[in-house]
Amino acid sequence: MKNKVILGALTIAGLAAGAAAAGTLDDVKARGKLNCGVTTGLVGFAAPNANGEWEGFDVAVCRAVAAAVLGDSTAVEFVPTTGKTRFTALASGEIDMLARNTTWTFSRDVDLKFEFVGVNYYDGQGFMVPKELGVSSAKELDGATVCIQTGTTTELNLADFFRSNNISYEPVPIETNAEAQQQYLAGACDVYTTDASGLAATRATFDDPSAHVLLPEIISKEPLGPLVRHGDHEWGDVVRWSLNALVAAEELGVTSANIGEMAAGTENPEINRLLGTEGTLGEMLGLSADWAKNAIGAGGNYGEVFAKNIGEDTPIGLARGLNAQWTEGGLLYAPPFR
């Protein structure tokens, strides 16, 4: 089994190295479209709406990158991927980037040969149970059946948590969030475990969300963010700084409402560099001077994207928490635009 795992990692790494050598930025420009890997469907993060258009918190990252590179936030082909297929899709070049509630880990960065360009959501793994189960702590789950997505860090964290607490569980393996939801509601498992944000998003779609509780334990660090292939540095810079542009815009007070006015020039040199009225940041990236203006204009700054898709006024109802700006006690922090 160990040899199989190593072989699989080497295969993905080999694919990634070959695909990266092609130069993704040039490919995307020539194609006139960004191929962006997303989840198969998680409301608030990435799911098609009633009109079949993809929307959500992760989708907004794809659209910001497309706007930065092509000047068009709609020039995106969304490719649904599962926990198992996402890395092969990226390594093989089927997608240009992955923006799919994917945790930045050592082995994914180093062994699978991917480049995580930043964190767009600081998360942790949690547990959801039916209220009628009468459980108030994950430590009371001895002997429980647990719905778990295969090929994920969630699977590994679950094993660690139960082993360290000397309790047992029976895994019910599933491949997609939709399958997990179906099995959990059908009673095929007592518990559903995944990133706490994913649990909140899933619960929000239930007929009676109040009949289900999120247990207090958060058992891991899950820094979720977009990734590209190793060795694809120019492209990695584009995706990284497009994400940073959304974060910096919120800190600097640049919004979808005032960006037109601010792009005419301000008293703040960093805003001017960000929006392309001063300096040559766009040229350094191989993009137009207004690349960041286009990225921010696609869906607003980070705070606007958060509030619209997953914030406290949405059915998902997530507080900013760790995802607040560093100036507000959170972990969000963009390096200087200079």
Rank of each mutant, 00 (worst) to 15 (best):
M97S: 02
T74V: 04
D160P: 07
A75T: 05
N177D: 14
V76A: 00
G126S: 06
T82M: 06
A144I: 02
N157P: 00
A159D: 14
S92A: 13
C189V: 03
A91P: 01
G126D: 02
G118D: 06
D123F: 01
V172K: 13
L141T: 03
N120P: 03
D96P: 02
V191W: 00
L158M: 15
E94M: 11
A99T: 14
Y121K: 05
N157Y: 13
E155Q: 10
L70R: 01
D72C: 02
G126C: 06
T145C: 06
G124R: 07
K84G: 09
S92I: 05
D111S: 15
Q125Y: 09
L185F: 12
D142K: 10
A159H: 15
L158H: 03
T194G: 07
E175M: 15
D190M: 05
L70Y: 01
K113V: 04
L156Q: 10
R163N: 15
L156R: 11
D96Q: 04
I167H: 08
K131Y: 14
D109E: 13
A68D: 01
T81N: 12
S107C: 09
F161D: 00
E140V: 08
C147P: 00
D142A: 09
E175I: 12
T194V: 09
V117C: 08
F116C: 03
E170P: 04
A89R: 04
T193P: 03
Y121W: 14
L98F: 14
M97C: 05
A91W: 00
G71I: 08
S164K: 12
G143Y: 03
K84L: 13
K113H: 15
F127S: 03
G134W: 06
A188R: 12
V135H: 05
S137A: 15
T74C: 04
K113D: 10
A67D: 00
T88S: 10
A178S: 14
L185Q: 08
T102E: 12
G143L: 05
V69C: 04
T74I: 04
M97H: 01
